[in-house]
């Protein structure tokens, strides 16, 4: 399965990366996906996005445009090719 991971805001600015592709051979949940990506980009996404075992308020992780908070949060299973958008808690307009 191919995961296309799009990084935004301060994560993009800190890592200099816009998008990375990761191939996985078995389904993973969102938390495991974050660990895999953290290793691949050498940036601790878990620390940036999670506090006390839950996503920090304001963090947005979209799987094909759908917020994981409306799925099974960190336990949401990713089992097909997916575009994943990751934003730290930063927004306001």
């Amino acid at each position: 399965m191919k995961l296309s991971i799009k990084l935004f805001a301060t994560i993009r600015l800190d890592t200099g990366l816009k998008i990375i592709d990761v191939n996985i051979d078995k389904p993973v949940n969102v938390l495991d996906m974050l660990k895999i990506v953290s290793e691949a980009i050498n940036f601790d996404l878990v620390k940036k996005l999670i506090r006390n075992g839950a996503l920090i308020p304001g963090v947005i992780i979209l799987l094909d445009g759908v917020n994981v908070l409306h799925l099974q949060k960190l336990e949401t299973i990713i089992d097909k090719d997916t575009t994943i958008s990751i934003f730290p808690a930063v927004a306001g307009g």
């Binding site: 805001a9 301060t10 304001g58 963090v59 730290p88 808690a89 930063v90 927004a91 306001g92």
Partner: peptide, 11 residues
């Protein structure tokens, strides 16, 4: 706060 302490100041 992530929004008012980090995001809005940065971007």
């Amino acid at each position: 706060n992530g929004v008012t302490g980090e995001g809005l100041p940065a971007l």
